[in-house]
Amino acid sequence: MESLYAITTGVLTACGLYLVLRGRTFPVVVGLTLLSYAVNLFLFSMGGLTTDGAAIVNGPGGYADPLPQALVLTAIVIGFAMTAFVMILAMRARSEAGNDHVDGRSREDREGRS
């Protein structure tokens, strides 16, 4: 089970990073989202993988580690805020530069420079 979990995390990381390396804003934002899934899964697993653990303290034990859960919970929400911010930034960049290239320069700039 652990090996499967690790492989899944690795694959998601790799796919996210590949997209982050693209040259247009939309795939990069999608890649960041994918990467944040992978990172959340990774962080979550730091407490070990507990099957059928108790969600609340009320009984005899067998709890899942609550600390990574609390951290990941806020990470998910913050991740959403960041995705939204980057996405709007990308829209703004397209509106200002006239294209959706990640370097944020207009075409003339890029051609003038290279």
Binding site: T13, A14, L67
Partner: peptide, 26 residues
């Protein structure tokens, strides 16, 4: 290649942590 290599690193790291006993402060 680059993304794949990093994926391998992350997977190995994750696997190594998961198969070890972890002393948690929880």
């Amino acid at each position: 290649g680059l993304a794949g290599a990093l994926g391998v690193v992350v997977a190995s790291l994750n696997y190594a942590v998961l198969t070890r006993d972890n002393a948690s402060i929880s």
